[in-house]
């Protein structure tokens, strides 16, 4: 991550269609490097769609058309020479429901390393290190160091979600996308994950979609408000919640609709 670079994600006139349905309409946005950016808006406003553009997992379903430009770390990800595999290596994603793979905690954490490196390059000691480092970074090491062989799917939900964050870290991503990462968690687990997000700021650019406005207010540095596929407002979080510029933003934040 170069120091002088101000934005890690820049989109320009981004439109996205699911078949005939237009889900994003001319979204132009610059997302700051090393900060937490919250994406808020009512259901169906396109915030998750926008998030899923940044690592191009949208394209799984086949009937998606995108126009415009997305630059991740100054590289247009719709260029022909883009490697989706390397894109997804540097742009990690955390999902709404924790989705660890049905393998051990240890294997979950090193999964990324295994798929991105040749078998010979991976030494046991190096993998052990990566596991300890990643689990320490998400505050799971003390809880799980004696049960690294437990299946990831058998952990508590909070631990599962942290594990899902931990498994991104050995790949040294620049950006972490989070799609309502706390919506399946209870309040304590939510708090724990939010604290984890604080501790990750600076090291990673984090974009988080959330339905929970209080959460957006608590965790994000900047906030983007979207409505019906369009970007309405993008400012510092404090400004958005204290004096929103647009009437629609204000109404949403006040809870008049949504």
């Amino acid at each position: 991550m170069s120091e002088e670079q101000e934005y890690s994600i820049e989109t320009k006139d981004l439109c996205l269609y699911y078949g005939d349905f237009q889900a994003l309409n001319n979204v132009t946005v610059n997302i700051s490097n090393g900060k937490i950016t919250g994406l808020i808006g009512p259901s169906g406003c396109g915030k998750t769609t926008l998030l899923r553009c940044f690592n191009r997992v949208n394209e799984r379903y086949g009937n998606v058309t995108t126009t415009g430009e997305i630059r991740i770390l100054s590289k247009n990800i719709y260029d022909n020479d883009v490697s989706l595999i390397n894109l997804r290596k540097s742009v990690g994603m955390v999902f709404q429901r924790p989705n660890p793979l049905p393998i051990s905690v240890y294997e979950n954490v090193v999964f990324g390393l295994r798929i991105h490196s040749k078998r010979k390059e991976l030494k046991k000691a190096q993998l052990d290190d990566a596991v300890e480092k990643a689990l320490r970074e998400v505050y799971l090491w003390d809880d799980l160091k004696d049960q690294l062989q437990t299946k990831g799917t058998h952990l508590q939900l909070e631990q599962q979600q942290k594990l899902c964050i931990a498994r991104l870290l050995p790949l040294k991503p620049e950006i972490i996308l989070m799609d309502e990462p706390c919506s399946a968690l209870d309040t304590e687990a939510t708090q724990a994950v939010e604290e984890l997000m604080y501790s990750l700021t600076g090291k990673y650019t984090i974009v988080i979609v959330t339905h929970n406005m209080a959460q957006a207010r608590r965790v994000s540095d900047e906030c983007i408000f979207m409505l019906l596929g369009e970007l309405v407002e993008h400012t510092r979080t404090e400004d958005m919640f204290l004096n929103p510029k647009h009437k629609k933003t204000e109404d949403y934040i006040e809870g008049r609709y949504g």
Binding site: N55, V57, R60, L84, I85, N86, L87, R88, K89, G92, M93, F95, R97, N99, P100, L101, P102, I103, F111, G112, R114, I115, H116, C164, R167, L168, L171
Partner: peptide, 23 residues
Amino acid sequence: SYREAAIALGITKWQMVYRVLMP
């Protein structure tokens, strides 16, 4: 969700078959 998790980590189709689906 397993497929999605693996895709988001940058898995290739072949790796998906033998690292995720087969197990």
